[in-house]
C-alpha cells in the first residue's frame, strides 16, 4: 500500500491487523495488505470464469457437428443473422466477405476478418443469443461454431465435428494480417513544428456534409452504410 502516507500506515497498523484477523476466519490463505475481501470458492470462480483464449485455455469439454449447428443456428441465431449468416437489417454479417478487405466496402466476417476461432466460441458462449446470454450448452456452442466454420468455407465437410480436443488445430484465414500499433504515424511537433502564418496560398471547400445529409432530424430515414461498432 505504497499510496498510504507513512504516518497513516503506522497509526492504522493495529486496525489493519484486527481486520486481517477477521478476514482470516473466512479466508484460509494469508490475507492481503488490508485484509479486505474474502476468498473466492472454486464453484464461484468456475461460475464466472468462462473466458477462452486462442490457445484453447478455458474451453469446456464438449463437441458439436456442422449439421447440428445448422439446426441450432436456424432456431436461435438466424432471426438476426439470417439462415446463412448474411445478417438481417443491420445485424452482423457472419459469413462470406473473403477477399474484400481492400475493397471500398469491406465485409468483415468470421471468415474474412476475425483472427481467432476462440473469439467466436467465447463470444457466443458469453453473450449469445442476444437477450438470452449464457443459455447455450457447450455442445450447442461447439455445434454453432462448427456451422460458422462451414458457412465460411474454413471446413468443407458437413460432417465436421468440432470439440475441445481438435479446437486449437483450426486456424482462421486472416490471422496473419493483424499488426501491432505503429503510432505515431503522423509527424510530431519537434519534427514538424505546426505552421502558424501564411501556411497556404488559397483554400477551397472540397466536400460538404449537405451533399450526403444523414444528420438526424432530417425528414427521411437514411442509411449511409457505416457502422460505429
Amino acid at each position: 500500500m505504497s499510496r498510504f502516507p507513512e504516518r497513516g500506515r503506522r497509526a492504522g497498523a493495529s486496525r489493519l491487523l484486527a481486520a486481517a484477523a477477521l478476514a482470516l476466519a473466512a479466508a484460509p490463505a494469508a490475507a492481503g495488505p488490508l485484509g479486505l475481501g474474502r476468498a473466492a470458492t472454486p464453484a464461484e470462480v468456475a461460475a464466472w470464469d468462462i473466458d477462452v483464449r486462442p490457445d484453447g485455455t478455458g474451453l469446456p469439454e464438449g463437441a458439436g457437428d456442422v449439421l447440428t449447428g445448422e439446426e441450432v443456428f436456424a432456431e436461435k441465431c438466424a432471426y438476426c443473422h439470417g439462415d446463412f449468416g448474411e445478417g438481417v437489417d443491420r445485424w452482423p454479417v457472419l459469413a462470406g466477405g473473403q477477399g474484400t478487405l481492400t475493397d471500398e466496402r469491406p465485409v468483415k466476417t468470421i471468415g474474412s476478418y476475425w483472427p481467432y476461432l476462440s473469439t467466436v466460441f467465447d463470444y457466443i458462449n458469453r453473450a449469445m443469443p442476444f437477450g438470452e446470454a449464457q443459455s447455450l450448452s457447450p455442445d450447442e456452442v461447439y455445434a454453432i461454431t462448427a456451422y460458422l466454420l462451414y458457412m465460411n468455407d474454413v471446413v468443407d465437410d458437413d460432417g465436421f465435428v468440432l470439440s475441445h480436443e481438435n479446437f486449437s488445430e483450426v486456424r482462421l484465414p486472416n490471422e496473419d494480417n493483424f499488426r501491432a500499433d505503429p503510432r505515431p504515424d503522423t509527424p510530431l511537433a519537434k519534427a514538424a513544428p505546426p505552421c502558424m502564418t501564411g501556411c497556404k496560398d488559397s483554400v477551397e471547400i472540397t466536400a460538404r456534409a449537405v451533399i450526403l445529409d444523414v444528420t438526424p432530424d432530417a425528414d427521411e430515414d437514411s442509411t449511409a452504410g457505416i457502422s460505429v461498432d
Partner: peptide, 28 residues
C-alpha cells in the same frame, strides 16, 4: 493472466483496418 485473450471487442471490433487489408490491433 500471462497473455491477451483476443476477445471480440479487440479483434472483430476496435481494430483498425488499413487500405492494404492489414489491421492494427491493441490501438489503445
Amino acid at each position: 493472466g500471462d497473455r491477451p485473450w483476443h476477445h471480440r471487442e479487440e479483434t472483430s471490433k476496435y481494430t483498425d483496418l488499413m487500405a492494404d487489408g492489414t489491421a492494427r490491433r491493441f490501438t489503445w
